[in-house]
Design a protein around this nucleic acid. Structure first.
Length: 481
RNA sequence: GGGGCCGUAGGGUAGCCUGGUCCAUCCUUCAUGCUUGGGGUGCAUGAGACCUGAGUUCAAAUCUCAGCGGCCCCA
């Protein structure tokens, strides 16, 4: 009986190899999101999960605040503005929520709940942009957006209310400057994800998959444990498409009124989905120290009446706290093993245990969450020892995730090969860049072309599997979320 | 877009096919007390559930329909 109980306890969280179940269960057990809110596609952030979100978004803010400004635009967009950009509407018309009534009165002009904020922001940009001296403008906001998703919704991944949409909207004098900004955006996003120990691939989306109204779209993807890719950031070059519809002009040095060029780029709570999914394991959450709500759990190992132990633990906790480390001193009267499981579930990167054996030798036992490795360290250097482990944890999480990504990029020559192997990850295959060939490839394989990645990944030599023409471009294909 | 499965305490479940034996089973969780304490201590006591609505019936967790919600597969 006792053994049976143990079995059941251990299986509280499904194995990560059963990704879907593991993910859903972990969100609840790890207190990230409560998925029980009774409206499809809407979920609740637990305080703990919200803490992770705050710390994650603090990194985005830190990176953007160097040359962006944060602002806040309204949620509701009048139909008259929303309908201005034809291509843009087409991209969203089936998923917009409309506010049609104020109380019992029908509104003269319906209000769209933003699915994204171009049409809320650009009427204001029209007013704000007067002269070349006003440019560039780099503004971002972090808001909720609404999309009436008809496909399978998933917490943090496919939502009807995206609660954490960081969208930046920039205005530039020239197309080239805007293109530079798009590059800068993907650079910032890659840096952001490095801070989260998440490896990424940046690629230019095929033309048929770009943002509605954009000249082109750059996307940041990562690979989830189940072999599907997750788009975790996009940057769009809008050219002067929106500037023309919203009449955003500036006076140049020659005194002429000319259209501005724009970009927009965004990140959502999918970043948190990636964070949790990529690092988590069968025991629960695993966080890089920077975003872990609790960075160190201090656990006294008590035998009977052990004031010395408690004292030593709270001294350690104080030393760490003084240095700004987020510490939980667990003096609850559970057994140590139960405490270990609990803090492991919560993703605490480093655990410090002090028991009679340690105290006698003036050491503490330090355990890393990512590897489970136990080491002893002198109490006198506890701060350094912990800091050292933070770095090591971050580094090894990133390495592990990068290896896992690279191992699952599979070079293919034929579409049959792609189709066969794509369930395990990303297929890399020559592509001539022609639209017809690309669409045929997607059709044949039953998966999308993410694009031609930046760097070595996107270049090589081979023949397009459809038309047979020689090409230097390598595309990546994958099942996507 | 097409198809299938499902909804019972905070979480996981038994019961449903064949309506009554169910003021609903077991595990976990939570509360209180004692006990215990280097990987989920043990015991005692207690708390907590049939998704919503309509229908069939003497009788519905169980059958029918609708709504809401969840999951899976295919395009």
């Amino acid at each position: 009986m006792a053994e049976k109980q143990t079995e059941e306890k251990k299986s509280a969280l499904p194995s990560k190899s059963n990704f879907s179940e593991w993910y859903n269960e972990l969100l609840l057990t790890g207190e990230i999101m409560d998925v029980r809110y009774p409206v499809k596609g809407l979920y609740v952030w637990f305080p703990f999960g919200f803490d992770v979100r705050k710390r994650t978004y603090a990194i985005i803010r830190e990176l953007l605040d160097k040359d962006h400004q944060e602002a806040l635009f309204p949620l509701l967009i009048p139909e008259t503005e929303f309908m201005k950009e034809a291509e843009h509407i087409k991209g969203f018309e089936n998923e917009v929520y409309w506010v049609t009534h104020g109380g019992k009165n029908e509104l003269d002009v319906k209000l769209a709940m933003r699915p994204t904020s171009e049409t809320a922001i650009y009427p204001m940009y029209k007013v704000w942009v007067r002269s070349h001296a006003d440019l560039p403008i780099r503004i971002y906001q972090i808001v909720n957006t609404f999309r009436y998703e008809t496909k399978h919704t998933r917490p943090l991944i496919r939502l009807r209310e995206i609660t954490s949409f960081k969208e930046a909207h920039t205005v530039h004098a020239t197309w080239d400057e805007a293109a530079e900004q798009v590059k800068e955006a993907t650079r910032i996003y890659q840096e952001f994800y490095r801070r989260l120990a998440i490896p990424t691939i940046v690629s230019k989306r095929p033309d048929w998959d770009k943002f509605p109204g954009a000249d082109y779209t750059m996307a940041v993807d990562t690979l989830m444990p189940d072999g599907k890719t997750l788009q975790i950031g996009t940057a769009h070059h809008l050219g002067s498409n929106f500037a023309k519809t919203f009449d955003i002009k500036y006076e140049n040095l020659n005194g002429e009124q000319v259209y501005a060029h724009q970009t927009c780029y965004g990140i959502s709570e999918r970043s948190i989905a990636a964070l949790i999914s990529i690092h988590g394991d069968d025991k629960g959450l695993v966080f890089p120290p920077e975003v872990a709500p609790v960075q160190v759990a201090v656990i006294p190992i008590i035998f009977g009446n052990s004031e010395d132990i408690i004292k030593a633990c709270s001294d350690v906790a104080e030393v760490l706290k003084k240095d700004g480390i987020r510490v939980a001193l667990d003096t609850s009267d559970e057994r140590p093993g139960a405490k270990y499981y609990r803090w492991e579930m919560k993703g605490v990167p480093v655990r410090v245990e002090i028991g009679p054996r340690d105290l006698k030798n003036n050491v503490a036992t330090i355990v890393r969450r990512d590897t489970g490795g136990k080491e002893t360290a002198p109490l006198a250097n506890i701060l350094e020892e912990v800091r050292k482990r933070f770095e090591a944890v971050h580094k090894s999480l990133f390495e592990k995730a990068s290896n896992s990504l690279n191992e699952r990029i599979i070079n293919c020559d034929t579409l049959e090969e792609v189709k066969e192997r794509i369930t395990n990850g990303i297929a890399r295959i020559p592509w001539c860049l022609e639209r017809e060939c690309g669409l045929a490839m997607e059709e044949a394989v039953g998966a999308g072309i993410l694009g031609v990645p930046e760097g070595d990944l996107g270049s090589g030599t081979g023949k397009c599997p459809v038309c047979g023409k020689g090409t230097q471009n390598m595309a990546i294909m994958a099942k996507t979320y």
